[in-house]
């Protein structure tokens, strides 16, 4: 099993006719994902990679029975695209677009939440359930089917760690990049319970970075309510305090928000934290044997 997406997930691509939308539609199809339609206003009736294009989300969903949308629409139009998705009977919306104004993201998030639709992202790589489906832009070949969940605030750092898991013989149930923006649809705390409840996930790798409190919240949740093994990596030990490091979310504020402080709190909660990405697979194997510190 997996969480959120599997071989039966029916996906539409918003912004399918754009450079990134069409390129990644092809990659998702190659992976075996059921891409059933695309949406670009004014381009209804066309086809991209053999997938029918519709003018609106409502038409696309009505014609294809899609339950999930992945959004590649450029930042300045992304709010309208997300609000349109909120009006459709979807379960999951995955927003890849980066650079969306924070207030736009917040308005869209509140609208989707009011309709009970889960949002992943924005500014994220999406998610992959290896061997079943990928919704987003993660390179398909880095994955291997297995029983470890991955949840990450980063994009490319996720690929790095997933690739090292695969190289170490550790397959994945579902890998999710949640995005690094100040406002995101799903946080560690929203997704860890899904992994905890998934009978085919044995362990979870949590990938964090400087900024915010999400890793600390996750550590508290782990200590209180999780029975499965969790190991972590946190990027940004060398980040100078107070500097913006690319993500609006990655601002070092108070003491709680530095990488060092997050590592300390994760370890105090019993989550081993790798010092370099390639250490994650070894740590996971050790943690399953009962060791809880990187030095073990």
């Amino acid at each position: 099993m997996s969480i959120l997406i599997d071989q039966d997930t029916r996906v539409i691509v918003q912004g399918i006719t754009g450079r990134d939308g069409s390129f990644h539609t092809e990659r998702m199809l190659e992976y075996g994902t059921k891409i059933v339609g695309g949406v670009t206003p004014g381009k209804g009736g066309q086809e991209v990679q053999g997938v029918p294009v519709f003018d609106t989300v409502a038409e696309a969903v009505a014609a294809t029975g899609a339950n999930t949308s992945v959004v590649f629409v450029p930042a300045r139009f992304a709010k309208d695209a997300l609000l349109e998705a909120a009006e459709a009977p979807l379960k999951l919306v995955v927003c890849i677009t980066e650079g969306i104004p924070t207030l736009d993201a917040l308005i869209a998030y509140e609208a989707l939440k009011a309709k009970g639709i889960r949002l992943i992202g924005p500014n994220c790589p999406g998610l992959t359930s290896p061997g079943k489906a990928k919704v987003g832009i993660m390179p398909g070949h880095i994955h291997k089917e297995g029983r470890t969940g991955v949840v990450s605030r980063s994009g490319t750092l996720t690929y790095e760690i997933v690739a090292s898991l695969t190289a170490g013989g550790i397959g994945q149930s579902t890998c999710i990049g949640i995005g690094g923006d100040p406002i995101i649809g799903s946080r560690f705390i929203d997704l860890l319970p899904l992994f905890e409840a998934d009978p085919e996930t044995d362990s979870v790798v949590l990938i964090g970075e400087i900024g915010g409190q999400d890793e600390v919240v996750a550590a508290n949740y782990y200590q209180r309510s999780m029975s499965k093994t969790v190991v972590a990596f946190v990027a940004g030990l060398t980040a100078p305090p107070g500097k913006r490091m690319g993500h609006a979310g990655a601002l070092v504020g108070g003491e709680d928000e530095t990488a060092a402080s997050k590592i300390e709190k994760l370890e105090a909660a019993g989550i081993p934290v790798a010092r370099i990405p390639s250490e994650v697979p070894k740590l996971l194997s050790l943690a399953k044997m009962g060791y809880t510190h990187a030095s073990a």
Binding site: E98, N123, S152, R153, S154, G155, T156, L157, T158, Y159, E160, G180, I207, E209, I210, F233, A235, G236, L237, T238, A239, K243, M245, G246, H247, A250, A259, R275, I276, P277
Partner: peptide, 27 residues
């Protein structure tokens, strides 16, 4: 990517080097 850029700086430091900058060429 910002996360991988930070992790790259961290690993350079981990192996005893010193990064000259943070530079994310974006997604």
């Amino acid at each position: 990517g910002a996360g991988l850029a930070m992790a790259t700086m961290d690993i350079v430091k981990h192996f005893g080097g010193s990064p000259a900058n943070f530079l994310d060429v974006g997604g």
